[in-house]
C-alpha cells in the first residue's frame, strides 16, 4: 500500500509539469471557459479604442512641434490650440486628440501618448477588438479544429491501416499506393487551391488535415498489424471461429492503442501549426474569427507601430506548440519506448 503510493508520487514527479501547466493556461482552460474568462466580444470592436497597447505599456508614439520659440504670448496660445492641430500622422493612420503639451528647450511640443489600461489587458487591434478576448476564443478554435482533425484522420487512417495489414493482397496494394500519393503531395499548395475555390473556411482546414494526416496513421498501423497478425493469439481466434471484424476490433485494435495514442499526441502540435499557418496565409479560418494565425497576419503590417497585435498571438502559438511537443515526447517515452523514431 505504502509502496504503491510512493510509486505513484514518483510517477507523478516524472510528469513534465511546466509544459503541462503552460498548456492548461494557454490552451485548455481558455478554450473550455472562453465565455466566462473573456472580458469582451472576440469579434466586435470599439472603433474609439483602436490599437491600444497592453496594460503595462505607455509609450510615446510621436510628437509635433507647435511653437518654435516660446514667449509669454504663445505660451498662452497653447490653450487656444485647436483640436485640429492636435493631430499626428503615423503610418497610415491619423491619431487625434489626447496630446500632452510639454516644453522642450525653447520649443513647445505636443506629445502623443497611448497608454494601455486594464480594460484591454493585452491591447486592441486595428478594429478596436480586444486581443485578450480574441486570444481566448482563438484557443477554443485551435483546440476544436486540431482535436477534430486528429480524431477523424486517426479513425480513418487506423481503420485503413488495419484493413491493409490484416487482409493484405489487393487491399494492401490499393491503400498503400494511396498512402504514397498522399505523403508525396504538398499540403499547403492543395490548401491554397481549396481556399481559392471555396473561399477561406474552417471546413477547408479540416478537409486538408484529414486528407493528408490519415496516411501517417495508415502506414504505421499497417506495419504493426503485420507484426501482430503472425502471432499465435490471432491464429487461435481465427480457429475458434471469430469473424474478421471481431478479430480486428477485439484482438488487434487494443494492441495498437498505445501506438495510435502516441502518434495522435505527436500530431497535435503539427496540426495546430498547420491550422495557424493556413489562417495566416488567409486560406484557413475566415475573418473576423479569432484564429491565432489570422491575428498574426493582421498585425504584420503594424509591427513597427503596434507590435502587440501580432506578437501576442505569436507567443501564444509558440508556447502552445512547444508545450504540446514536450508533452508528446513524454507520452511517447511512457507508452511506447519502441517508437522513439516517430
Amino acid at each position: 500500500m505504502l509502496i504503491s503510493l510512493w510509486r505513484r508520487v514518483r510517477e507523478a514527479r516524472r510528469l513534465p509539469l511546466l509544459p503541462l501547466v503552460m498548456l492548461l493556461v494557454v490552451l485548455v482552460i481558455p478554450a473550455v471557459f472562453a465565455p466566462l474568462i473573456a472580458p469582451h466580444s472576440p469579434v466586435e470592436g470599439n472603433l474609439n479604442d483602436r490599437l491600444l497597447p497592453p496594460f503595462w505599456v505607455g509609450e510615446t508614439i510621436g510628437y509635433k512641434t507647435v511653437v518654435e520659440k516660446v514667449n509669454r504670448e504663445n505660451r498662452l496660445n497653447e490653450i487656444l490650440l485647436k483640436d485640429a492641430e492636435r493631430r499626428i500622422k503615423i503610418g497610415d493612420g491619423t491619431i487625434t486628440g489626447g496630446g500632452q503639451i510639454v516644453q522642450v528647450g525653447d520649443q513647445l511640443e505636443i506629445l502623443f501618448r497611448k497608454e494601455g489600461s486594464t480594460k484591454y489587458l493585452l491591447g486592441t487591434d486595428k478594429n478596436g477588438m480586444d486581443i485578450f478576448s480574441r486570444l481566448i476564443y482563438g484557443a477554443r478554435l485551435a483546440l476544436v479544429v486540431s482535436l477534430l482533425g486528429i480524431v477523424v484522420s486517426g479513425i480513418l487512417g487506423s481503420s485503413l491501416g488495419i484493413i491493409a495489414g490484416y487482409y493484405g493482397g489487393i487491399w494492401d496494394t490499393i491503400i498503400m499506393r494511396l498512402v504514397d500519393i498522399s505523403l508525396s503531395i504538398s499540403l499547403v499548395l492543395i490548401a491554397l487551391v481549396l481556399a481559392a475555390v471555396r473561399g477561406p473556411s474552417i471546413d477547408n482546414v479540416l478537409i486538408v488535415i484529414c486528407l493528408f494526416l490519415w496516411s501517417r496513421y495508415a502506414r504505421l498501423i499497417r506495419g504493426e498489424t503485420l507484426l501482430l497478425k503472425s502471432q499465435d493469439f490471432i491464429a487461435r481466434a481465427q480457429v475458434s471461429g471469430a469473424s474478421d471484424l471481431r478479430i480486428m476490433y477485439k484482438h488487434i485494435m487494443p494492441n495498437l492503442a498505445n501506438t495510435i495514442i502516441v502518434l495522435a499526441t505527436l500530431q497535435i502540435g503539427f496540426v495546430i501549426i498547420l491550422e495557424a499557418s493556413l489562417s495566416f496565409l488567409g486560406a484557413g479560418v475566415p475573418r473576423p474569427n479569432p484564429a491565432w494565425g489570422l491575428m498574426v497576419a493582421d498585425g504584420r503590417e503594424l509591427l513597427s507601430n503596434a507590435w502587440w497585435v501580432s506578437l501576442v498571438p505569436t507567443v501564444a502559438i509558440v508556447l502552445t506548440v512547444l508545450s504540446i511537443n514536450l508533452l508528446g515526447d513524454w507520452v511517447r517515452d511512457r507508452l511506447d519506448p519502441k517508437q522513439r523514431q516517430i
Binding site: 495557424a276 506578437l311 509558440v318 506548440v321 512547444l322
Partner: peptide, 10 residues
C-alpha cells in the same frame, strides 16, 4: 516546434 511564420514575425 516553432512555426516558421511565428519565427519570421519574431
Amino acid at each position: 516546434a516553432i512555426p516558421n511564420f511565428c519565427l519570421g514575425i519574431g
